[in-house]
Design a protein around this nucleic acid. Sequence first.
DNA 1: CTGCCAGTTCAAGTGAACTTGAGGTCAAGG
DNA 2: CCTTGACCTCAAGTTCACTTGAACTGGCAG
Lengths: 144, 144
Amino acid sequence: MRDIDIAEVAELSGVRASTLRFYEEKGLIASHGRRGLRRLFDPAVLDRLALIALGRASGFSLDEIARMFAPDGRPRIDRKMLSAKADELDRTIRRLNAMRDGLRHAAVCPAPSHMECPTFRRLLRVAAAGKIGEKKARKSRRKS
Amino acid sequence: MRDIDIAEVAELSGVRASTLRFYEEKGLIASHGRRGLRRLFDPAVLDRLALIALGRASGFSLDEIARMFAPDGRPRIDRKMLSAKADELDRTIRRLNAMRDGLRHAAVCPAPSHMECPTFRRLLRVAAAGKIGEKKARKSRRKS
DNA sequence: CTGCCAGTTCAAGTGAACTTGAGGTCAAGG
DNA sequence: CCTTGACCTCAAGTTCACTTGAACTGGCAG
């Protein structure tokens, strides 16, 4: 059983078949043949998908990820890019930490309204600082 | 000088006029009158915008944020929601920390290819774990 | 008074990342 | 042999958060 079909890949990876087709179209993964119409994948596609998930979770766009393992096929990840991304992630983490502390405080703050709480207002200043619309976390898509 | 116009709000907050109009349409902010056609805002809108920025940075959608200071007008943020969001943020932060460490390692890893590095593969498993398509950071929009 | 320019409206467009729908195909089971 | 059902393709739709374009308006400088 060398190759696995799209349904299996979907099952094993948790990635939908439609997404797998989409990724293939984008050049992020490649199918290795067909059984009838049915795409067959090398099991290594699972690593690839994990890599893609990693990239996404680290804030890379699909296009950036695609560029990472181009053009020959095998992952060719630029170490400089990785450490730049790590730095970026680090800054994001710091912001989120401040945010979380602020939220935590606001949740238990005794001031009658959040706007009257000095800590909350300080948090607001932090949020507003360093360019207002700059960096944001995003919720996952809800499952269908 | 009680009220400030949209250009000033844009300047002071760093939020574009088009975005301010969009936010007003969404009910996230309110203008307080007009000078000619020109919207006038209460300076308090700046706090409001900071609050919105905070919400966005914490992973709330605009709709969620709108619901926060509805329906009467003034911020009435549910403390339970805040602490739930803080917990969520905390989990995100932990994931991002692991991610960053992984990236950092991969950046200096001596293995000839990332796929051959055990640490990188462990990172991959972490990324793949806990539902593959679950939680992701997002890059900011580039400035026009 | 008159033109400019920054504001206005409304509709449509953008981009990322997918999902959905319609209509078609094929390997396998009865 | 024929039905079935999972997969196929291709186009279009969806959500989020805005941005852009076209056509218009009105306060203020000259």
